[in-house]
Amino acid sequence: MLSGPKTRNLRLPTAVGENNMPLYAERPPLPSDDKRWRIVNGTMRKHGYSRNALIETLHTVQSSFGFLDEPAIKFVAQSLRVPLSQAYGVVTFYHFFSLKPPGRHTCTICTGTACYIKGSDKLVAETEKLLHIKPGQTTPDGEVSFTTARCVGACGRAPVTLLDGELSGQMEAAELKAQLERWTTQ
C-alpha cells in the first residue's frame, strides 16, 4: 500500500500515479471540525484511500450529512486523488445522490411498474397539487422534500410511499393528503 496514515506528509513530487496525479500528495484538511467528517475519513481509510472508494465515500457523506455540497465533493475528490470533474460526474450520474439539502420531512412516492398500475400517478398529482412543487423539489419553507422512486421493491404492497423513510403500502390519496397536511400545518 503506497498511501496510508503513516505516509501522510511525505512528498515525492516526481512520483506519478494513476491519472498523472502525484503520489503522496498531501491530503486536504477536514473541511470543518464537524465530527461527521471523521466518519467520512474512516470510510476512505478503510479502503486505503483508493480511487475505487469514490462511490462508497459519497454514500457515507450523503448518509452523514443528508446531501452532497461543493466543499464535500471537493474534499472527497482531493482525498482520493480523483479529478473533481470525475467526482462531480459520478455524483450527478447516480440518482441516489442529492446536491440539495433535504427538507425537514421527506415524501417519496414509488413510481415503479406495480405502483404505476395501482395508480401512483394519482398520488403524485395529489402531492404536487397540495405542496405546489414538482418531484425533486423542496417546499420554499424547507418543510417537505418530495421525490419519486424507481422501485423500492415492495411491489406486493403497491402503491407504496416512503414518508420520512418509513414504508407504507396500499396508500390511498386521502391518507397521503392527511399526512402531508399534518406536516405543512405544524
Binding site: T111, G112, T113, A114, C115, Y116, R150, C151, G153, A154, C155, G156
Partner: peptide, 11 residues
C-alpha cells in the same frame, strides 16, 4: 442491482 421496477425476488 435489481433495477426492474416490479421485481423484488432478489431483495
Amino acid at each position: 442491482d435489481e433495477g426492474d421496477p416490479g421485481a423484488f425476488m432478489d431483495r
